[in-house]
């Protein structure tokens, strides 16, 4: 008998997603203080940064500024999400890596030997929570930012072209990011390592992209994970950026790739790294 056969037999890799498993993961996620803090941080970062950025742009706004910059007030008020994503990424990673760090994963996998079921349940729960909190953050940041612009003719409205898409897109982006981060937590199995990997994808890779030759700027760079996902926040089309839904689809593909890789390795490895 080959080793692979033993590995496949050892744990049942698949199983139905029962309400019980979802409730278990919901209980785990909501019973931790760190979850509450990270979600609170998500909202605060989105609101505070948005208010500050929108105020700065508004104070500098004149004919000259308008000539040099893309005027996208909806996007100004959503820039806080670029910072809020940090908290969501950490939450996603910890949802999985936290179990490896404490050894809880052994208890979890003895209760539910269908390991893929555990990962899917975690993805459902953490993405649902971040979708709600992310959408609230996005809408709140938009409304707060636009209130700064009240009385100015550049103020954006939800029924302006692309604005509703940008605002709801903020919540969708964070929900998908949570799944990407969760998957990296499952693959790396170490909180610090997995968080560093996510930050590398979201912040370092775009920074590297910015110094690549111009020919890359309008071909590959817009499809780097962070860049692609954040394209959906632009209400006004940008040069050197992916089209909003195209970029978002690319970001979903990255998350799906990481999630599939995690589903693949989870039943094939020993529960804890030796």
């Amino acid at each position: 008998m080959t080793t692979t056969e033993h590995l496949q037999r050892m744990a049942a890799p698949t199983g139905a997603i029962t309400p019980g498993v979802l409730r278990a993961e919901w209980t785990k996620l909501t019973s931790l203080r760190s979850t509450r803090w990270l979600l609170l941080l998500t909202v605060l970062l989105a609101l505070v940064v948005s208010a500050v950025v929108t105020s700065v742009y508004a104070s500098q706004y004149d004919q000259d500024f308008a000539a040099r910059h893309t005027i996208d007030p909806a996007y100004w008020s959503l820039t806080g999400l670029i910072f809020a994503q940090l908290a969501v990424a950490v939450l996603g990673v910890l949802t999985m890596s936290g179990e490896y760090g404490t050894g809880l994963i052994s208890t979890t996998f003895t209760a539910v030997p269908q390991r893929r079921t555990v990962l899917v349940a975690k993805a459902v729960v953490v993405s649902a929570v971040t979708l709600v909190v992310g959408t609230v953050s996005s809408l709140g940041a938009f409304l707060l930012g636009q209130s700064v612009l009240s009385g100015k003719h550049i103020k954006a409205d939800l029924d302006d072209p692309g604005v509703l898409r940008a605002v709801t897109g903020g919540g969708l982006y964070l929900a998908v990011l949570a799944v990407l981060a969760l998957s990296l937590g499952a693959l790396v199995r170490h909180s610090a390592g997995a968080i560093a990997t996510v930050l590398g994808l979201l912040y370092v890779l775009p920074a590297i992209g910015a110094i690549l030759p111009p020919s890359w700027q309008d071909t590959a760079v817009p499809y780097f994970p962070g860049n692609a996902g954040l394209a959906i926040l632009h209400a006004v089309p940008m040069a050197n950026a992916a089209a909003p839904w195209t970029g978002f689809a690319a970001f979903c593909a990255y998350a799906a790739l990481a999630f599939t890789a995690a589903l693949y390795v989870l039943p094939r490895r020993d529960a804890l790294p030796k």
Binding site: M1, T3, H6, L7, M10, A11, S106, F109, T110, P113, D270, A271, L272
Partner: peptide, 8 residues
């Protein structure tokens, strides 16, 4: 407990 896979 199915946590680690036997080699044989």
């Amino acid at each position: 407990l199915g946590l680690d896979a036997p080699t044989a």
